[in-house]
Write a protein that binds this DNA or RNA. Structure first.
Length: 505
RNA sequence: CGGGGUGUAGCGUAGCCCGGUAUCGCGCCACAUUUGGGAUGUGGAGGUCGUAGGUUCGAAUCCUGCCACCCCGACCA
C-alpha cells in the first residue's frame, strides 16, 4: 500500500456556506440542525412526536439488530403486549403510579361522529367504561399477564423482551433525546429467587454496556442509581451513563431489580421445589431511541455526523470523478469490482454515480451524513492504479493503491471504530474530576463540566439541595467503586465512597 | 404547565410600528458550458403570508382564540 499524500481537507474550507452551527457557538442548535440536515428525523404534525426518517431509522435498525441478537444470546425471546393498559392496573403499585401519573395519555372514548355541520367530533355517548392508558412502560400489563403463565418454579424463569413504542407526555421535547412517543425495547423477566433476578439485572446492564462500547463506540460508566433517581417501582436501578461533548451526562440505558413489588401488586405466586408458595422476583430493562441522541452527540463534529462503522447504514461511499463517458465507464467497472469485494466482506457500500451533483457537493453531503469511509476515483487514479481514501472521523485523506483495496478498507473501518471509541474515552476520562469541597464542586461544574466524583452523605435531602443549587444530580454510584473515607462536600458528614455528579440530559 | 420569543415559496429572510395584494438569497425546473472540495450563465416555475374568527371599502400588517417550534423554569429516559 502506498501513501503519497496526507492532509487535512478542511484547512482551506472552514467556512461552509451551507454548513451547520458549530458546537462552540451553540451546542443545542448544532444538535438540532445536525439531526435535520443529516436526514435523521424531523418534527411531526403532532406535538412532541417525531418522524424518524429513513436514514435515521436505518441506524436505529442496526442498533436493534445488534441488541436483539445479544438478548437472544442471553436466552431471551421477543413477544408483544398491548399498547393500551386499563387504568385500574396502574393503581396497583403505589410508587409506580406516582412516577408516571403526571405524563400519561388517556383514551376515554372509542368513536367519532359527524356533528351535523360537517365537523368530526368525539361521540360523548361512546365513553369507555374504563379508561385506557397509552403505555408509558409495560410492567403492569405484563405482570397481569404473567400471573396466568406462572404456577410453579418449573415455569420460571420467564425471559421476555418486547420492541415497542411508548408514550410519556413530555412538556419539553427534543428530537431523539426526549419525545412524547419513542421507540424502545423493554425486557421483563420473572425469577424464582431474588439472587437470580439480581444476576439478571446485572447481566443486562452489562449487555447494554458492551453494546454501547463495542457498537456505539461510546464509553459508559456502569452504576447504581440513588433512591432519588430510581425507577418508580424498583428496589434498585442500575444504569449506564455516558458523557456528551458539551460535558453533560446522558443516561443511555437502565436495568431494574423490581424485587417482588409487581408480583405482589398483581398477585403472581409460584410453588417452589420445596412446595412453598412465594411471590415471583422481577426485573425490567430498557434502551430507547434516545441512544440515537447519544450516538450523535458523542462523536459528531462541526462538519456533521460521525458514525461508528458498525452502526453506519452506509459504511463506504464511492464517488466517481470523470470528464468523459469513457472515463465514467472505466470508473464504473472499477467500482463494480470493489463493491463486489466489499459486499463479500459484509461491508455496506454506496456507489454515488448521480450525474446531477458534482464531486465536491457529494463529498460534503456524505460527510454531513457521517459515512465513515469515502473512496474517490478519477482519471488520475485510473492511470496510476490508485484511489483516494478519506476517513470521516479524522477528516483526512490519502492516496492508496487499488491492489488489496477491499482489505485496506476493511482495516480502515475497524481502525475508525477503534479511534472513535478512544477519542470518546479520552474525553470521558479527562472529564471525571475528583473534588473535595463544595466550592470546588461548583467551580468545576461551571467551568469544566463532565462527571464530578465527590463524597456524599447518602441522603436524598442533600442530593436535592445540591440539585436545587447547581442543577447537578447524582448520575450514579459506580459499580466496583473503591471504598474511601471522606466527608460529604455539602454537609460535611462522613462518607465511604465517591459518587458521580453531573448536569444531565 | 408558567415566563419570553418566533411563524411569510422546500430552506433562510425583508415587509408589520404607520393597512392598499409580497422582497431578496439558497434550493427547484429547462438548456448550455462544467466536473480532483459545496460550479457558472441564460431562461422559468413556485406563496390560501401557521390557523380560525373579528375590525375595515381593503389585512402579511390591527384585535382575539387556537396550533406548532425555539429559549428559560418546573417535570422527565
Amino acid at each position: 500500500m502506498l501513501s503519497i499524500l496526507k492532509h487535512n481537507f478542511y484547512s482551506k474550507h472552514t467556512t461552509m456556506s451551507k454548513g451547520i452551527t458549530s458546537r462552540n457557538e451553540d451546542y443545542s442548535q448544532w444538535y438540532n440542525e445536525l439531526v435535520n440536515k443529516a436526514d435523521l428525523a424531523e418534527h411531526s404534525a403532532v406535538r412532541g412526536c417525531m418522524v424518524i426518517k429513513p436514514y435515521g431509522y436505518a441506524i436505529w435498525e442496526k442498533m436493534q439488530a445488534a441488541l436483539d441478537q445479544m438478548f437472544k444470546d442471553t436466552g431471551h425471546s421477543n413477544a408483544y403486549f398491548p399498547l393500551f393498559i386499563p387504568k385500574s392496573f396502574f393503581s396497583k403499585e403505589a410508587s409506580h403510579v406516582e412516577g408516571f401519573a403526571t405524563e400519561c395519555a388517556v383514551v376515554t372514548h372509542y368513536r367519532l361522529k359527524n356533528d351535523g355541520s360537517g365537523q368530526i367530533v368525539v361521540d360523548e355517548e361512546a365513553k369507555l367504561e374504563e379508561e385506557l392508558i397509552v403505555r408509558p412502560t409495560s410492567e403492569t400489563i405484563i405482570w397481569n399477564t404473567y400471573k396466568g403463565w406462572i404456577q410453579s418454579y418449573r415455569d420460571l424463569p420467564i425471559l421476555v423482551n418486547q420492541w415497542a413504542n411508548v408514550v410519556r407526555w413530555e412538556m419539553r421535547t427534543r428530537l431523539f433525546l426526549r419525545t412524547a412517543e419513542f421507540l424502545w425495547q423493554e425486557g421483563h423477566t420473572a425469577h424464582a429467587t431474588s439472587q437470580e433476578a439480581v444476576e439478571e439485572t446485572e447481566r443486562m446492564l452489562n449487555v447494554y454496556a458492551t453494546f454501547a462500547e463495542d457498537w456505539m463506540a461510546l464509553p459508559v460508566v456502569r452504576g447504581k442509581k440513588t433512591e432519588n433517581e430510581r425507577f418508580a417501582g424498583a428496589l434498585d436501578t442500575y444504569c449506564i451513563e455516558a458523557l456528551m461533548q458539551d460535558g453533560k451526562a446522558l443516561q443511555a440505558g437502565t436495568s431494574h431489580f423490581l424485587g417482588q413489588n409487581f408480583a405482589k401488586a398483581f398477585d403472581v405466586k409460584f410453588t417452589s421445589k420445596e412446595g412453598k408458595l412465594d411471590y415471583v422476583w422481577a426485573t425490567s430493562w430498557g434502551v430507547s431511541t434516545r441512544l440515537m441522541g447519544a450516538l450523535i452527540m458523542a462523536h459528531s463534529d462541526d462538519a456533521g455526523l460521525v458514525l461508528p462503522p458498525k452502526l453506519a447504514p452506509i459504511q463506504v461511499v464511492i464517488v466517481p470523478i470523470y470528464k468523459t463517458e469513457e472515463e465514467s465507464q472505466q470508473i464504473g467497472a472499477l467500482a463494480d469490482d470493489l463493491i463486489a469485494q466489499l459486499k463479500q466482506k459484509g461491508i455496506s457500500v454506496k456507489y454515488d454515480d448521480r450525474d446531477t451533483q458534482r464531486p465536491g457537493f457529494k463529498f460534503a453531503e456524505w460527510e454531513l451524513k457521517g459515512v465513515p469511509v469515502r473512496v474517490a476515483v478519477g482519471a488520475r487514479d485510473l492511470q496510476q492504479g490508485t484511489v483516494e481514501l478519506a476517513r470521516r472521523d479524522k477528516q483526512t485523506k490519502e492516496t492508496v493503491s487499488q491492489d488489496g483495496l477491499a482489505d485496506t478498507i476493511e482495516q480502515l473501518l475497524s481502525n475508525i471504530q477503534k479511534n472513535i471509541y478512544e477519542k470518546a474515552l479520552s474525553y470521558r476520562d479527562t472529564h471525571i474530576t475528583e473534588v473535595d469541597s463544595y466550592e470546588e464542586f461548583k467551580k468545576v461544574l461551571e467551568e469544566k463540566g463532565g462527571f464530578i466524583a465527590a463524597h456524599w452523605d447518602g441522603t436524598v435531602e442533600t442530593e436535592k439541595r445540591v440539585k436545587e443549587e447547581t442543577k447537578a444530580t447524582i448520575r450514579c454510584i459506580p459499580l466496583n467503586n473503591k471504598e474511601e473515607e471522606g466527608t460529604c462536600i455539602f454537609t460535611g458528614k462522613p462518607s465511604k465512597q465517591r459518587v458521580l455528579f453531573a448536569k444531565a440530559y
